[in-house]
Design a protein around this nucleic acid. Structure first.
Length: 595
RNA sequence: GCGGGUGUAGCUCAGUUGGUUAGAGUAUCGGCCUGUCACGCCGAGGGUCGCGGGUUCGAGUCCCGUCACUCGCGCCA
């Protein structure tokens, strides 16, 4: 017999009755009746009930063994009586009468139990991640993650994509997020950077003639955490293709996402082709470029109705260049005034200008805006917005960017408060036609709005003839349920167009040469038109596992402050290590303390 | 860096208007228990109420500061 097990804890069934078996696993739960003792033995695969009666040679050992100890047992499979069958367990028709037991590894007092589904503080869960990972919820999430990744690889490979590894130690690149730096011992004063994404490498792979690349690629960005953004590192399904148009990229990735989401979730999934929404339309109708299409509310611009109207606050602001966006709140007219006031208070607390509103009760519009706007204008609003006799509507008035943003968060807030967002579907869309450039208010200059490597729509001619702020790029995002899953682009493979585009954003040819020389140089020796994208793997699994927090789908995540509480990273290092690197650390200045 | 929330036993939580010796469930330990599967019953131990300061005759409760965790803003080509 095998040293540890003849079966797993999910193998034994009625058909095994009479067999002599050997099992190993964790003591999940003990039920000690004095003269009779049950242990639920657990492994990766499931649970099996062990029975020790008082005559058993190992009864005393079983009484002493603690939860989460690892044991090996030999025993006989017996059928349970009709009354004692456990229909909840796949192995519930049988149990093992134990003849011999060995403790392979004794467990001490547990800082958190594995059994049960009690919530535990996150720092305890992170410090004892190996215990948390034994629990069903995390264990299942991580298995799901493995299966999703395996399926992604299969689907990509079947489409003729090849998986290549790209360097982890590479060069810092000037824009994007903050880099993680690694000192270069052989080059005092110089540093490697961990890649924020294998962007240039995958483009270079296209120049190298590999035609179709993918990678489950680790990406490193030194940014602060969010619920859907783990600090440090994350994974992307990184994809690049040669000789393709934007539609070719869409056609390649849509079936992959559709199939993975259908396979690993019971929720309804948008069938391919996914809707395509121009960036500008998304900013207007949803107030952001990652719309949750489950939310039925659509924002409208109603600036013209308020221009010169009796509602003086808005009218004056419009004269100064503000706009007004309307956020309908279906059915909210039946809510009390408190609903509208507290939504307004919420927006102010979030740091916005505040929300005006009209609440229509039984067809009668109420609130200060309706009063001051007058009957005719109010009716025009109701007709324009298609409001019903018991609907409400909020208004965001500000400069365009501010109003759009406030309208967007209000749309989400109102949709949530009115319970308008169903949780039983995945609604995908593409956001397309991003602007190539935007005006950078801080530095008073034109800058890239997204990815500087994107091909401008219209190519060189557009750059030479159009208003820079009007030029669109072949740049696209995939969004599902308000989560930005991926961004991508058809790349700019022409050195002349690239130098021109960078020039418009204020980067000299020398700077481009210095920062992107590797790629720019490659484009001078025959580069195929190419494009790609990179959906976030962690976010995909988070959505499929229906988890609100990305740490629940990462095996060993860091906390919000980018610390690994289990491994104690980051940590100080030996002076010798620093000397080798010609590095000296400087204490940060102490904060002023008021005595 | 900024704003919100949370912080009481190992854990989940209760604790009234500021008023006796801060409670319950669970876990742990001891005792009893031969059909449980959240086993049951009896008992015990376990607390600087995150920490520091203040107000008060008196603070878990009120005020100020600070720390930890978390959510958001900034940041995220």
């Amino acid at each position: 017999m095998h040293a540890f097990r003849s079966h797993t804890c999910n193998d034994l069934r009625q058909a095994n009755v009479g067999d002599t078996v050997r099992l190993s696993g964790w003591v999940h739960r003990k039920r000690d009746h004095g003269g009779l003792l049950f242990i639920d033995l657990r492994d990766n695969y499931g649970l099996t009930q062990l029975v020790f009666d008082v005559d058993s040679a190992c009864f005393k050992d079983a009484e002493a063994v603690r939860a989460e100890s690892v044991i090996r047992i030999d025993g006989r499979v017996k059928a349970r009586t009709q009354e004692t069958v456990n229909a909840e367990l796949p192995t519930g028709e049988v149990e093992i009468y134990v003849d011999e037991m060995e403790v392979l590894s004794a467990a001490g007092d547990l800082p958190m139990p594995v059994f049960g589904d009690v919530e535990y503080p996150e720092d305890v869960r992170l410090k004892y991640r190996f215990l948390d990972l034994r629990r069903d919820r995390l264990h299942n999430n991580i298995i799901l993650r493995a299966q999703v990744i395996s399926e992604l690889r299969r689907l990509m490979t079947e489409q003729g994509f090849n998986e290549f590894q790209t360097p982890i130690l590479t060069a810092s690149s000037p824009e994007g997020a903050r880099d993680f730096l690694v000192p270069a011992r052989q080059h005092p004063g110089k540093f490697y950077a961990l890649p924020q994404a294998p962007q240039q490498f995958k483009q270079l792979l296209m120049v190298s003639g590999f035609d179709r690349y993918f990678q489950i690629a680790p990406c490193f960005r030194d940014e602060d955490a969010r619920a859907d953004r783990s600090p440090g590192e994350f994974y992307q399904l990184d994809i690049e293709m040669s000789f393709v148009t934007q539609d070719d990229v869409f056609n390649a990735i849509e079936p992959v996402l559709e199939e993975v989401f259908k396979k690993f979730s019971d929720k309804k999934t948008t069938p391919a082709p996914f809707p395509r929404i121009p960036f500008k339309e998304s900013m207007l109708k949803y107030g952001n470029d990652k719309p949750d299409l489950r939310n039925p509310i659509e924002i409208q611009d109603v600036t013209e109705i308020f221009r010169g109207s009796g509602f003086g606050i808005f009218a004056r602001m419009i004269e100064e260049g503000a706009i007004v966006r309307a956020i309908p709140a279906p059915g909210a007219g039946l809510k009390s005034r408190k609903f509208f006031d507290s939504t307004n208070d919420w927006s102010k607390k979030e740091g916005y200008a505040g929300l005006g509103y009209i609440n229509i009760k039984e067809g009668v519009p109420g609130g200060p805006i309706a009063k001051n706007l007058g009957e005719e204008k109010t009716q025009e609003l109701i007709d324009t917005l298609g409001l019903g006799p018991n609907d409400g509507v909020f208004f965001a008035c500000d400069k365009e960017a501010g109003a759009a943003k406030l309208a967007g968060v209000a749309r989400t807030k109102v949709g949530e408060d009115l319970d308008l967002i169903p949780n039983d579907e995945f609604k995908f869309c593409w956001i397309v036609d991003y602007p190539m450039f935007e005006y950078d208010e801080d530095n008073k200059k034109i800058d890239f709005s997204h990815n500087p490597f994107s091909m401008p729509q219209g190519g060189m001619e557009a750059l030479e003839t159009q208003d820079p702020l009007e030029i669109l790029a072949y740049q696209y995002d995939i969004v599902v349920n308000g989560v930005e899953l991926s961004s991508g682009a058809i790349r700019n493979h022409r050195p002349d167009i690239m130098v021109k585009a960078f020039g418009m954003a204020g980067y000299s040819e020398e700077v481009v040469e210095q920062e992107f020389g590797g790629m720019l140089n490659a484009f001078k020796y025959g580069a195929p038109p190419h494009g790609g994208l990179a959906p976030g793997v962690d976010r995909m699994v988070m959505l499929l596992a229906d988890e609100p927090n990305i740490r629940e789908v990462i095996v060993f995540p860091m906390n919000q402050k980018a610390e690994d509480l289990m491994m104690n990273a980051p940590s100080t290092v030996e002076p010798k290590q620093l000397r080798e690197l010609y590095i000296r650390t400087v204490e940060p200045p102490k904060k002023e303390t008021s005595e």
